[in-house]
Simulated assay, not measured.
Amino acid sequence: MNTADRPNRKRATLHRMVMEQHVCPYGLKARDLLRRQGFEVDDRWLTTREATDAFKAEHGVKTTPQVFIDGERIGGYDDLRRHFGKPVADPDATSYRPVVALFGMTLLMALAASYAVHGTPFTVRAVEWFIAFSMAVLALLKLQNIESFSTMFLNYDLLAKRWVPYSYLYPFAEGLAGLLMIAGALTWLSVPVALFIGTVGAISVFKAVYVDRRELKCACVGGSSNVPLGFVSLTENLMMVAMAVWMALGAFGVLPAAAHGM
């Protein structure tokens, strides 16, 4: 069926960059959104830099893609989302989404590992793995940009403020403790490391947030996050402390071997 056979079909015109070495991702998103909204899309490509610059000058815009509906310019991808009443993410807004995604995935990883090893996801070892996996992944996120992490960390960590190298060592210490706890090896090393960094971290966060009432971003998931400092970071540190105490009790025979996976 051609366009003439569908007189009631909604139509939109999309101008987007499609070049040999660059296809604008927002143009693809805009086209997809229009189609999902039931629009017939007149997809017009800007195939050269000269054509793109000429289009921008003609319409007085600074960016592409640009969407037109019924001859009216709607704007770019974010403007199109607003036009359809859909939310537009604010890059500067605080969000707990990175933390929810991280802990949700590490929990599933722990349950999967428990099922693979013990035949059931619901074991005490799964709880231990959940904390240890979380520590390892949190360390990974920090190590992706350790300079950015250390800068944010120095805003509130009491030890790092007195000894700056600690802000660089912290992710390595957290990762080492997490990996050793996953393996159930070298408890004599993983327990004191986790206990030390967890205790210092918990005290630092508690002082910054609940005593000094400072509003800061948390460095727990790396230096580029917009997670507010507070409950999440405090929980991260208390989890490390709890895991260290739990494994120490197991190592000294206070807990039965089956309870701590040793």
Score class of each variant (00 low, 15 high):
P7G: 12
R9I: 15
R9P: 05
H15P: 05
R16H: 15
E20R: 15
V23A: 06
C24N: 05
Y26W: 08
Y26Q: 02
G27N: 10
A30M: 01
D32P: 01
D32H: 03
L33D: 01
Q37E: 12
V41W: 02
V41N: 03
V41G: 02
W45A: 11
W45R: 13
L46H: 03
T48Y: 05
R49Y: 03
E50A: 13
F55M: 04
K56A: 08
K56T: 07
A57Q: 15
E58Y: 10
T63L: 07
T63R: 05
T64I: 13
P65F: 02
P65R: 05
P65I: 00
Q66V: 06
Q66R: 09
Q66P: 12
Q66K: 05
V67P: 02
D70A: 08
G71R: 05
I74P: 03
D79P: 05
L80F: 12
L80T: 03
V88F: 15
A89N: 14
A89I: 14
P91G: 05
P91R: 08
D92P: 08
A93L: 08
R97F: 11
R97P: 09
P98N: 06
P98A: 06
V99K: 12
V99N: 05
V99R: 14
V100Q: 13
A101N: 12
A101C: 07
L102C: 10
L102D: 10
L107W: 10
L108T: 13
A116Q: 01
H118P: 02
T123R: 01
V124Y: 04
R125H: 09
V127Q: 04
E128T: 06
F130A: 13
F130Y: 15
F130G: 07
F130N: 10
I131E: 03
A132G: 10
A132W: 07
F133C: 13
F133M: 13
S134C: 14
A136V: 14
V137C: 06
V137R: 06
L140S: 03
L141A: 04
K142W: 04
K142G: 04
L143S: 07
Q144T: 08
